[in-house]
Every structure is written in C-alpha cells, then in structure tokens.
C-alpha cells in the first residue's frame, strides 16, 4: 500500500514538470497549428544551460532558473520570427519538417557546446523529505511546486491579461482576431517565446533530478507529444491534466513492467488516443484523422 502511494506521488511529481513542458507545446499548437518538434531540445538546452550556470559559474539555482527561462524565451521568439513564421500558412508537414530540422541542428550544436556526455547537478536539493509517511525526493518536490506555479502563472496570464486574451483570440479565430486589430504575427512570436521559456524552465527544474545530455530532447519530446494527445491538442488545461496522468502512468508502468516496456506503455496510450479519441480528453475538434 505504501509503495502504491509512493508510486502515485512520484508520478504526480514527475507529471508536474511534464505539464510545464507540454503546456507550452500545446499553446504553440493552439495558436499556430504547428507541432514544435524542437521542443525537447528547448528542454535539453534549458537543462544544460542551467548546469553550466549553477555548477560552472556558481550561480544560485533560482537565479539560474530565471536567467535560463528568459534566454530560452528570447530564443523561441527569434526562432519563430526568423524561420517558422515563413511556413505557418503552408502545409502542416512543412512546419513539422522545419522544426524537425531545427531540432537536429540544436542537438548537434549542443554536442559542440557541451560534449556528448551526461551532466548532473550534484548537491542541489539532494536528499529526501518525509511527507505523509513517504520519503519523497526534495528535488522533485521543489521542481513540482515551481513547475505547477509557473504553469498556473501562465494560465492566469492567458486568462486575465490583454496580451493573454489576444493569444487566445488568435488561437480560436485567427481571422477575426486580425480584423479586430490584433497583430497575429507578433502574437505568434510571443507564443513561441512563451513556449520556449516554459520548456527552458522545465529543463532547469529537471537538471537536479536526471543527468542531462544534448540528446535528451528526443526522449522527452515523445512524452510531451503523448501528453498533449491524451490531454487534447490545443487545450492548455488538457495538457496539465494529461501531464499529471502521464507522469503517474510512466512511473507505475515502469515499476510494474520495467523501464523499457513502461515507456512503450506511454506510446500505446498515445496511439490508442490518436486512433480512437483524436480530440483527447479536452481537445479541440481536430485533425488527427
């Protein structure tokens, strides 16, 4: 019974970080119908930049978090403005190919910068904390709290602020938004920046939990895809619920079936949803079939 509770708790904690990553991915999809294949590399760059700052330059963890998130936000904004904007109106496969190519360029740039090996962040939030009789990793608790806080903050921004409302308007009815005086292109840059910021922050939060390497993106982007497909493409709240669910499925699946086949379970879930419920739990009525 104790193990079950610990599995659920650990799954939930992992899911919180997936939420931060996947909500950004889904925000991007919602606004411009582009699936950002490079989202995993945003996460990897976030993690590796975080390790460089904290371990290499002795920057405090929270300061590094803010710096890296800001840097990845700017990077996402510029990437959209310089490259992806050009294919937004084209066939979806062209934008996917473009983000796929960006992903491979980033992986190799990462290897050039940091080398191919794994980098950890030892000594940051190490050890565990007793919670309700369970021993939970401190790094996971902190990451979960910050990740959910950030996800909520962005949700509040989308719900309340003028800019957030403009983003939602472009997501729902781009033509009407444009004739209402919203500069749709600028909103798209901003959305990509926001997505980059969230993925970068998720990377920094993950760095104390797992060793990071430039090729980690592919492992996590598949999970993020699974999250938004299960949660519902384009739905911010859906991605949040999906992420917590996927975290739990991954941890319990890995415990029951072993690491390898636990990952395969996620994939089966993704294909199952794509085939039988393409709009996911809360999604827009779109597109998969």
């Amino acid at each position: 019974m104790r193990t079950l509770a610990e599995l659920l708790a650990n799954g939930l904690l992992l899911g919180g970080i997936y939420a931060l990553m996947a909500c950004g991915l889904n925000l991007i999809f919602g606004v411009m119908r582009v699936i950002n294949f490079a989202h995993g590399e945003f996460l990897a760059f976030g993690a590796l930049l975080g390790v460089s700052l904290v371990i290499g330059h002795g920057v405090p963890f929270l300061v590094a978090l803010v710096l890296v998130a800001a840097a990845m936000g700017v990077f996402g904004y510029l990437l959209q403005a310089a490259l992806i904007e050009r294919v937004v109106d084209g066939p979806p496969i062209m934008s996917l190919l473009l983000t796929y190519s960006v992903s491979t360029i980033l992986v190799n740039a990462g290897i050039l910068i940091w080398g191919g090996g794994y980098r950890g962040m030892p000594g940051v939030f190490s050890g565990s904390v007793p919670v309700l009789g369970m021993n939970l990793s401190q790094a996971r608790l902190v990451a979960f709290a910050i990740a959910l806080g950030l996800t909520g903050l962005v949700y509040g921004f989308l719900a309340r602020s003028m800019l957030g409302k403009a983003i939602r308007a472009v997501s729902e009815l781009p033509e009407i938004a444009t004739v209402s005086g919203i500069a749709a292109a600028r909103i798209r840059y901003l959305t990509f920046g926001l997505g980059g910021m969230m993925a970068g922050a998720a990377g920094v939060l993950m760095a104390p939990m797992f060793a990071s390497d430039p090729q980690m993106g592919a492992r996590f982007v598949i999970k993020a895809f699974t999250v938004i497909i299960v949660g519902g493409m384009g739905s911010y709240a859906g991605a949040l619920v999906g992420a917590l669910l996927i975290g739990i499925v991954e941890v319990t699946g890995g415990y029951v079936l072993g690491q390898t086949f636990g990952t395969a379970i996620l994939y089966v879930l993704m294909i199952g949803f794509l085939l039988f419920r393409p709009s996911g739990l809360f999604g827009l009525r779109v597109v998969a079939r």
Binding site: I222, T263, L275, A288, R289
Partner: peptide, 18 residues
C-alpha cells in the same frame, strides 16, 4: 495509416524509439 499528416510522422517517430 489511419493517422494523417503530422500525426503519422510523430507516430512513426515514436515507433522507432519503441
């Protein structure tokens, strides 16, 4: 092949990883 466009691409990518 019941999946279309980007979803087929992503599904196949995941498949290779599996």
């Amino acid at each position: 092949l019941r999946l279309r466009g980007s979803f087929f691409a992503i599904g196949m990518f995941g498949l290779a990883r599996v």
